[in-house]
Design a protein around this nucleic acid. Structure first.
Lengths: 349, 349
DNA sequence: ATGAAAGCGCTAACAG
DNA sequence: CTGTTAGCGCTTTCAT
C-alpha cells in the first residue's frame, strides 16, 4: 500500500527532472555550478510540481532555522505592536521569520514561551521580560543562543540589552513642568515593579529634588492597571489626596488619557486648571483634545538597534564555529527619548 | 577532530541515562509505558544536561510543525494587533505557535510571505490578504494546507472565511443617523478597493435609499490613507464640497478622530454642528472628547472563530489521512458588529 | 560538471 | 517493559 497525500519532495523533483537530488539541491541554493540545461530543467520541474523545499530540514544539518523568537507581555499594546512590526519587517528582509509569544505578564507563560523557543530551535531570542527568570535566561546564554533584552534591566544579569533612557525621559517631563512654574506635580505610577517603572519614578523624584522641590508621597499614586479606566480612577484619587496639585504626569499615554477624563469629569479644565503629560508618544496622542504633551519613545530605533545587535551576535556565532569562544562582551545600548511639547501642559494660573 | 558546540541531543541523554533513545523519546512524549525507575532517571538526566527536544525534527516524520502562519497587512493597526494577540493566545494554549508576516499591503511581499509559510511547512495559514492572489491560495488549498481568510471576501474563490458583516455595521450607522434626523450624511471612504470597503459603502448607500434619501456623490470622499492626518484632510474637503452636511461617518476610528479635529479646526462644534461616527470600536475611542460613537467589531470573536475553524480543519486533515478526501465544504462564518452609541453624534439643530 | 551516500535528531514499527 | 533500526527531506562530503 503506497503512501498518499505526501507532499512533493526533492526526490520527486530529482526523478522527474532525471538528475540527482544533489543537483536539485544545488540549483535551489546556488551552492555549486550546475550546467545551464540542467538548471533550466530543474527549475522547470520545481514549478510544475509545485515544490517548496522544506527549510526545517536544512536546520537539522546546518543548525540554522532562520527563525527568531520574540517574547513580550502583549502584542496589542501599541508600542509593542509597532516594535513587533518593525522587527518583523527588518528580519524578514534579512531572510528571518518571527515567532511571537505573548505572556500577559504571567511568569509561568513566560517560562513556557522560553521553552518553546528552545524546543523550536530559534536562532536567537528577543525578550521583553516580565519576570526576572534569570536562571532560564542564563541557560539560554550558556547554550550559545543569542539573547537580547529590550527595555528592561535585570539586576546582576549580564546580557545584551537595548533600552530607552526612561530616567532621562521622566526627568525631562518634570523639569519642563517646573520650568513652566509648577511646584506640586502629581505622578501616576505603574503598579508593577519593573526596571523601567523604577527608572521613571527615579527621574520624577530626581528632577524635583534638583530643582529644590521636596517630593511628597501623597503626590504619587499607583494606577491599578495600564488602561484608560485605571487612569480615570488614579487621577481622581490623586486630586483628592493632594489638593494643591497643578499638574499630573502619568507613566503611560493611555493612563494620561484616563487622567484627562477623570480630571475633567471632576470639573477641572485642562490644561488651565491642571496640566497633564503622558509617556510613550503613541501616534494617537496627537488626536486628543487638548493634544497630549508626552515623551516620544523612538520605537523604530529600539527595533532596529535590537535587530542590528541580534544579527551581529548571530554572525559572530556563525564565524566562531569551532574556536573557543572569545565571548565578546555584552552590550547595553541606550536610546534617548524626547519630550513632545503639545497643548495639555501650560503655565499654572 | 571531534565536533564541538553541538547541542545536547536525545543520544546524549540516552547514553548518560544508560537507556535506549526510544525510551528517552517515550518518556518525553509519554507515548508508551516506561518503568518508574527509568522514567525518573531519564527525566533527571534531561534536566542535568539541559536537553530540549528538537521539535522541528518530529515534523519531519509526522508532518506536523505545530506552527501556524499569519499573514496580514500590518501588526500595528490596533484591530489587527488585538486579533493577532488573541489568536496567538488561543493557539499557544493548544500547543501551536504563530509565525507572523506583515505585508504592508504590498502584493509582492504578500506572495513572498505565502512562500515562506510553504517553505517552513506551516500546519495551516491564516490570511488577511491585500491582493487577490488567488492562484497562490488555490495552490495552498490543493496542497491540503488549511487556509482561513479573515475579514475579506474574494470573488469566485471558494475558501474558508471568517468575517464581519460590514454591510450591516455600516447600514446601522446610517440608519441611526437618519433616525436622529440627519438627511445629508457625509461618508469618508477607504482609498483601496477591498471587499470590506465595498461592503461598507454599500451599507451606507442602501441605508440612505431604504429611508428615502438619495445618495449624493459629493457626500462621499476618499481618504488618502487610514491615518489621523488623512482624516483631517478628508473631512475638511468634505464639508467644503458638501456644505449642507450635518453628520460625517468615517470607515475607521482613526480617520474619524482626524475628522473630528479637522471639523473642529474649521470652527464647527462637535456634535452640535456636525455629528461624527467611526468604525471598528477600538478601545481608545471612548477616550476622545466627545466620546466617539462607533461600531464595535468583535475582534476577539473573530479570532476565536478563526482558531476554531482552523483547528477543525487541522483535525479533519489528520483524521482523513489516507482516505480520499471527502472534502468537507468550505465555511463562511459571519460575525455581527454592533453600534456603540456615545456622545459624538446627536440630533441635528 | 554531476552523482552517491552518509548523516542531522527523532519517532514508530518491529523484536524480544 | 525496553531496545534496534529504518526512514523523514535535505546538505554536503567524497567520488567520478
Amino acid at each position: 500500500m503506497e503512501k498518499r497525500n505526501r507532499s512533493v519532495t526533492i526526490i520527486d523533483v530529482a526523478k522527474k527532472a532525471d538528475v540527482s537530488i544533489a543537483t536539485v539541491s544545488h540549483v535551489i541554493n546556488q551552492t555549486r555550478y550546475v550546467g545551464d540545461e540542467l538548471t533550466q530543467r530543474v527549475n522547470q520541474t520545481i514549478k510544475e510540481l509545485g515544490y517548496y523545499p522544506n527549510r526545517l530540514v536544512g536546520s537539522l544539518r546546518n543548525k540554522k532555522t532562520h527563525t527568531i523568537g520574540l517574547i513580550l507581555p502583549s502584542i496589542s499594546n501599541e508600542t509593542f505592536a509597532i516594535f513587533t512590526e518593525t522587527v518583523e519587517k527588518i528580519l524578514f528582509s534579512s531572510g528571518y521569520n518571527l515567532i511571537i509569544c505573548s505572556t500577559s505578564q504571567d511568569s509561568i507563560l513566560e517560562e513556557a514561551s522560553f521553552n518553546t523557543m528552545l524546543t523550536k530551535k530559534m536562532d536567537a531570542i528577543i525578550a521583553i521580560p516580565t519576570s526576572s527568570n534569570v536562571e532560564k535566561m542564563r541557560e539560554i546564554q550558556s547554550m550559545g543562543i543569542p539573547l537580547v533584552i529590550v527595555d528592561r534591566v535585570i539586576d546582576g544579569f549580564d546580557v545584551d540589552t537595548v533600552r530607552v533612557d526612561n530616567f532621562k525621559g521622566s526627568y525631562d517631563v518634570v523639569k519642563y513642568l517646573i520650568s513652566l512654574g509648577h511646584r506640586s506635580i502629581g505622578y501616576i505610577d505603574r503598579n508593577v515593579e519593573l526596571s523601567h517603572s523604577l527608572e521613571q519614578r527615579r527621574g520624577y523624584i530626581k528632577a524635583l529634588e534638583d530643582n529644590g522641590v521636596t517630593p511628597k508621597p501623597e503626590n504619587i499614586i499607583r494606577a491599578d492597571g495600564s488602561d484608560y479606566k485605571s487612569g480615570i480612577r488614579a487621577a481622581q484619587t490623586l486630586v483628592r489626596q493632594a489638593q494643591d496639585i497643578t499638574a499630573i504626569y502619568a507613566y503611560y499615554d493611555i493612563v494620561a488619557f484616563g487622567a484627562m477624563r477623570g480630571i475633567y469629569d471632576l470639573g477641572y479644565k485642562i490644561p488651565e486648571d491642571i496640566s497633564i503629560i503622558g509617556y510613550d508618544g503613541m501616534p494617537f496622542t496627537e488626536a486628543s483634545y487638548p493634544r497630549l504633551t508626552t515623551v516620544s519613545v523612538p520605537v523604530d530605533q529600539l527595533a532596529s538597534e535590537t535587530c542590528k545587535l541580534l544579527m551581529k551576535r548571530i554572525e559572530e556565532k556563525h564565524l566562531k564555529g569551532n574556536q573557543d569562544k572569545p565571548e565578546s562582551k555584552t552590550e547595553d545600548i541606550i536610546i534617548q527619548p524626547s519630550l513632545i511639547v503639545r497643548d495639555s501642559a501650560v503655565r499654572p494660573k
